[in-house]
Each structure stands twice: as C-alpha cells, then as structure tokens.
C-alpha cells in the first residue's frame, strides 16, 4: 500500500486559507490503513481546525472510498460545490485526482506521502518497492535491492555492511544485501549473487518521464 503521514498540524494550519467553508476529505483505502487520512483522522482534523484560532467559518468532514479514482467523486459533488476549499487527507495521487476533477477548487494536501510499503507492526511501516517498472525479486529471493539497499546497488553488499546493518545507520537500518544473502542461502540460490548484474534500464522507471499504463485489452 501507499504509506503516508499527516503533516504537522502547525504546517497544515499555515497552509489553510481563511475561507467561509472548508471541506476535509479523507480516503478510505491505503491512508486509512496507515492511520493517516481515514474517517477517524478526518474527524480529529476537523476538531483541531475548529479549535485553532483560524478565520474559517465552517469545517465539514467527509470521506470517500478512494480519491485516486474518478468514480467516487460523484457522491461528493454537492458538498464540494458548497465548500470554498478542500483539505485532502489522501496520498499525492488522490490530491491530484481531486484537483483535476474539481478544477478551480483550491485543494491543500494534508499528508506527506512516503512510499509503497508494508505494515510491520503497530504503527510501523517499511518501504518495500520503488515502482521501478522492472521487477527482479525472483533473483534476489523476494527482497528488493533497489529499495532495501540505501544505495540501490545491483551487486551488493558494499563494504559498509556490518553485523547485518547498513553503514548509513547501523542501529536502525538493515543492510538490504545482507538480507538478500541470508534469504538466498536459505533458498539454496546463492549462485544468483555471483552473476554480475548489468546496469539498470532506468527508462522504465520515473527517469524515462512520467509513466502511463494503457491496457489495450481493456479499452472500450
């Protein structure tokens, strides 16, 4: 899922314009799961804004299934029309989709979108995938070197790997390549690491420009 986190309330308040009617809009998918922008967070956000000494007339809260999908905007057309600005508690994709759909309506992002990751425990998420467009997890035993290695090395580990930890933060950051090594050993596939991986084709990632995916087979 997409993992995001609320901006500090001070920053949000500073960004908010002094309008008559503000809509705080949550999203019921990824950011609900990572406790950043679901129904519950919308409620808390609304009261925080009301309590703050801001010249905002009325604060309304609402949440929809997904802000990254046009089909869910229909149901809020009326309430959006009533509001002067929207504070979106969706990921960056949701905020943009919302701004596109309700063009002309001011949309303010309430979250910082961080990464594609997994839920590792209570209040703990981990980055797992950079969306590189060219998955190699079969070679590395299901651990992504592009994401889990601090330098995204294709032929690791580098000389900074110590006690299973990465040189950038030996107390908190595991060495991705150490994990890969241990995993491949269990899979009896260490030989994979002996192959010199060639330079990556970054054109398949964001470096090739903003990406689009158009499935011919499901065009109307």
């Amino acid at each position: 899922m997409i993992v995001a986190e609320q901006k500090p309330i001070g920053e949000i308040l500073k960004k908010l314009p002094e309008v008559e009617k503000l809509l705080v809009l949550g999203c019921d998918t990824c950011v609900t799961v990572c406790l950043a922008g679901g129904e519950k967070e919308v409620k808390v956000m609304c009261s925080a804004i009301r309590m703050a000494d801001k010249k905002i007339g009325e604060v309304t809260g609402f949440s929809i299934e997904r802000q990254c999908d046009r089909e869910f905007f229909k149901e809020i057309e009326a309430v959006v029309k009533e509001s002067d600005a929207i504070l979106s508690l969706a990921c960056g994709a949701g905020v943009q989709m919302l701004s596109d759909y309700f063009e002309g309506k001011l949309v303010i992002p309430g979250l910082n979108t961080h990464f594609i990751g997994s839920n590792e425990g209570a209040g703990y998420w981990l980055e797992r995938c950079l969306g590189c467009g060219d998955c190699m997890l079969d070679i590395t035993g299901g651990i992504c070197p592009k994401t889990r290695c601090s330098k995204g090395l294709m032929n690791g580990p580098c000389g900074g790997s110590e006690n299973g930890m990465c040189e950038i933060d030996p107390l908190n950051t595991e060495c991705g390549w150490y994990l890969i090594y241990e995993r491949l050993k269990k899979l009896n596939m260490l030989q994979n690491m002996m192959t010199n991986q060639p330079p990556r084709d970054w054109s398949r990632a964001h470096d090739g420009g903003p990406r689009k995916l158009l499935r011919e087979d499901i065009q109307p």
Partner: peptide, 17 residues
C-alpha cells in the same frame, strides 16, 4: 556521511558495473 546530506544520490551504476 558528508556535508551535503540533502543531496540527491546517483548510483546509476554500481562499482562492479
């Protein structure tokens, strides 16, 4: 580690490549 920790890293290729 250095004096520009905000810099974007490159690592387009690695040392072996």
């Amino acid at each position: 580690f250095g004096n520009h920790p905000q810099a974007k890293q490159v690592y387009d290729i690695d040392s072996i490549q």
